[in-house]
Amino acid sequence: MTRLSQVGLPQFLAILALLAGAAVALPGIANPGIVFLAGLAVIEIVIALAFNFLFSTVGILSFGQAAFILVGAYGGAAAIKFAGLSLLPALLVAGLVAGLLALAIGVVALRRVEGVYFAVLTLAFASLAYLTVGKVAVLGREDGLTGITRPAVDLGIVEIPVVATTSFYYFIVAVGVVLTAVMWFATNSQFGRVLRAIRQDQERAGFLGVNVQGYRLAAFVLAGAVTGIAGALLGPWTQIVTPDLGHWIQSTKPILQAMLGGAGFFWGPVVGAILFAVLTYATRTLVGITEIVTGGLLLAIVLAIPGGLLGLTGSLLRMIRRERSR
């Protein structure tokens, strides 16, 4: 379970192209309601990837990722609504704000508290952000910011309008692809290998001259910024941001998705987020069944198949191969 799948670059690009292709093909075959949910799912995939980067590569359990979704969403929405920025600068602002928040939390907390204490501390910080944002008049208190527009994507030479729902969906997919690539490189580059060394043994990594706290902080800030950028997509997509984006349910969702798919695999959170979206959609009319199914599945996975769905598929494939080679 501690092994991150060592897929090479070609394999990564192939899978990414396949997923992106499926996402791009979706509006042609599905109704607008499903396309809307798919856009949300792409955003959740990025958030779950960032969580799992922290959990599986760095060895940090954060129960407060909602804080970064929240400040990213509000940062992006405010940049569009109040500053009139175009889309890409707005995403940058969101990443910056969320990254700074991660830096602040990381500087005070990462060094001092470990494991479960860190999890609860991040939960406290996220709740603080959630309650504070809900009381600020400029940010619309409990009602949030409404009527967030979808400004054009300004690439310098050309301006691409993304006001139509389908165009903005493609924009979400494009940003999702870029951020997924960022997380993959962070995981599989030398940076990621140092982080894994730290996770396995902080003390030994320190003896080898690695700046342990610096690397952990950098990873925490990167995950926070990526989560914030993903969160910033929510405002223009749903046209509203509310304090509920910072509710602790939003922090536990990526955990759930990563575990469902398989936290030990780079693609685990992606599989988990898609499965979660399908489950939520399939059980949407049955009150309480969503929680029973997801809770039950999560429990079954932690108890029986700690590798998640990808881990289960992997061991099934190995079993089949062994049978054949007999």
């Binding site: 069944i289 997801t294 999560l298």
Partner: peptide, 9 residues
């Protein structure tokens, strides 16, 4: 946490 979800459901 999974148990909490289950009970909530």
């Amino acid at each position: 946490y999974a148990l909490l979800l289950l009970v909530e459901g």
